[in-house]
Design a protein around this nucleic acid. Structure first.
Lengths: 226, 226
DNA sequence: GGTATTCATCTTGTATACAAGAACTTTTAA
DNA sequence: TTAAAAGTTCTTGTATACAAGATGAATACC
């Protein structure tokens, strides 16, 4: 037995894992909208595999909250009702606010610079009102924030929830001048963290995330009413 | 060999789900300690089922963070290193603190009474220094707290993490006079929530949870050193 | 005509079969 | 004696087979 070289991570990735990632991507990008039925045979044919890895992928997705497994009645893409989404945004706001607080406390100068860089990168897309590009850069900005917390578990939790809320956040940016407003909010966040103001960082982030939940609620209400 | 109780017969729930619950219970109660190898054939024999539902259960457990799936090399019970656990306790502290804040803001008088009842129930076990009984009642107290947040998503997240940290919290209560101290801390929490003092509730809970993480770190350090 | 019931079909849940990589054992070379 | 190499066994990953509940259609009944 060789004790010097550590066991290298197996290069082999199970099919079910790859399938889960692919299907999850289809869900968060709305190619598979909430409520879609996920027929095992259909998916098996589509990906040219047997039902076994498909089922295993669906179980992973269910554990992540992306799909709902109804015993003996198949899987559907989770459809979150507005109230549930508000709750999720509430939790997201707290998680991110805590990331910000820790970032303000723990981030070194290089990391603060990285956050600033990620922020500046958003500027052009914001002013141009390019929601797709802004969406991408915005995600990067927030993920940078998570990393600066120096708490990898918190970072993972935040990323997971970010992904889960992705379809609903995406909608927001189509609202008039939302990208510019979002960018302004980022400005306050960056200032607070760079200057090491924990409370201000937490408060700015909380407000930033909450706005999305509330806007979503408004949107849903208007759709109900119209 | 240790007898792991078979899954309870429940016709409409998939086997894999029951198996996952049973195995998870064995993990959080340390009947399957961190690092244990989870051989698929062995588990299949033990539960008198085929490997298929066993594999599906393991995937669910992996998504919940209870086991680690190493491609082509089998599953083991997750062994969290001390640093990781500190991180998890940090996040738990924030989640629960937020539960407490929302509870102080939102709970009605009946709910406040329920919390008080759950608290008082802990008293006898605390003074008797009965860690097992206190552990059970303590979990109920905290779960009541989660419910009072009036945010079911937050409640679920908190319960999940509570379960995941269970093996490590359980250790704490064996420490001398820890049950009494825990009970005292609960006292401050209850007072804050009943009186509707959000900040005090959040702060008291944060401290309460943090102590566990820090005590755990101390314990690990002493084991390392000795 | 509408509703309940029975039967055929389809889909899911579990078991078994087979293929391929990992672990272990034995052999061989220095 | 130690270490590398080869061969064997064992375990996991995927495919297929089969059983049982769910869906839907046709029929019987009011």
């Amino acid at each position: 037995m060789n004790t010097l070289s550590p066991p290298s991570p197996s290069p082999h990735v199970p099919l079910s894992h790859q399938l889960a990632e692919t299907i999850e991507e289809d869900i968060v990008t709305q190619r598979l909208p909430p409520g879609s039925k996920l027929d095992e045979v259909m998916l098996a044919n589509r990906f040219q595999v047997s039902r076994t890895p498909i089922r295993e992928a669906l179980i992973q997705l269910a554990s992540g909250g992306f799909v709902e497994l109804r015993p003996r009645r198949g899987a559907i893409v989770t459809r979150a009702d507005p109230h549930r989404l508000l709750e999720m945004f509430e939790v997201m706001a707290e998680l991110e606010a805590y990331c910000g607080r820790l970032a303000a406390r723990r981030a070194n100068s290089g990391e603060r610079q990285a956050l600033l860089t990620a922020h500046v990168a958003c500027e052009a897309a914001s002013h141009a009102g390019d929601p797709d590009r802004y969406f991408y850069l915005n995600e990067h900005f927030h993920q940078t924030l998570y990393k600066l917390s120096h708490n990898s578990f918190l970072e993972e939790q935040a990323r997971q929830l970010q992904k889960r809320l992705r379809p609903y956040r995406r909608l927001q940016l189509r609202v008039r001048r939302r990208t510019e407003q979002s960018y302004q909010e980022h400005q306050s966040i960056v200032e607070a963290i760079v200057s090491g103001n924990e409370d201000m960082a937490a408060q700015a982030i909380r407000a930033h995330i909450r706005i999305q939940g509330e806007r979503f609620a408004d949107l849903m209400a208007s759709l109900q009413g119209g």
